[in-house]
Amino acid sequence: MAVATFLHPLDKHLRLDRIPTLYCPGCGLGIGLAAMLRALDKRIEEGTIEPDKVLWIGGIGCSARMVFYVNYDAAHVIHGRSIPFATGVVLANPNIKAIVVGGDGDIAGIGGNHLLHAARRNIDLIVVMFTNFVYAMTGGQVAPTTPRGVKTTTTPYGNPEYPMNVIKLVSSLNANYVARTSITTPHYIEQYFYKALGMKGFRFIEVISTCPEVYGRHIGLRNPVEMYIELKKRVKYKPRPSIEEAEIDWNEGIVIGEFIERNNPSYLEIIKGELSEV
């Protein structure tokens, strides 16, 4: 009997010898990565991105690990420091397309200060932050995005802290692109990431993700399908949402869309201009 080999159209973008991933059943990260790869594939096919110039950078966490499944140059660095690492890369070689991937803990928690300053500089990076509302890899501790009152392993009496609205934070700075999407709307992940790949300056995409294994356990949505459906019900697309609408409220709903789209001079453009005068 002949052996049939079935190739997935995205196989060429992956290190197949590392598949399956370590992601739990029902994890949203696979949907997110596939959508990003479709966008990248499109860019490569149309010749607007050279695959050899792509560098994926991740810190620590489930989302950050995406970087070592993709068949590209990749840096799996220390917790929270993917953005300054990427900053060094693009300043030393502006031809590199730097894609930073991480969870909300890695990017907005421990790496929060770097996020602020990268957005302020409008440095030429794409940051894709997967928000799952919890520190999942370490077993379910409270995250900067965990809603008030949620019981986690380190807030057994309910989270006393107000969550961080990362969209609002990054929008207040000098980022050229700020968008939010969800793993329940993979077409928007693909669309926004495709757009971001063609832009300059600091580009930030938040992807709301499902973590039934860890966060689902905390909020009583342990079943992956159920969690997906519950998130899908709450996600509302708006064509031009205001920053105020970026507030995440599990009861009121989660607005997705493109919050900021600017064409400000990027850091690389500015220093190139200044250096030409030296």
């Binding site: 840096a75 420091r81 890369v89 300043l91 590199i96 300053h117």
Partner: peptide, 25 residues
Amino acid sequence: VVVQMEDEIGSINAIIGASWAGAKA
């Protein structure tokens, strides 16, 4: 290129990145 980073953690991580991009850092 010289960049003043937001702290020393950012500084050392940036030079590690730059070195991987081929620059003496």
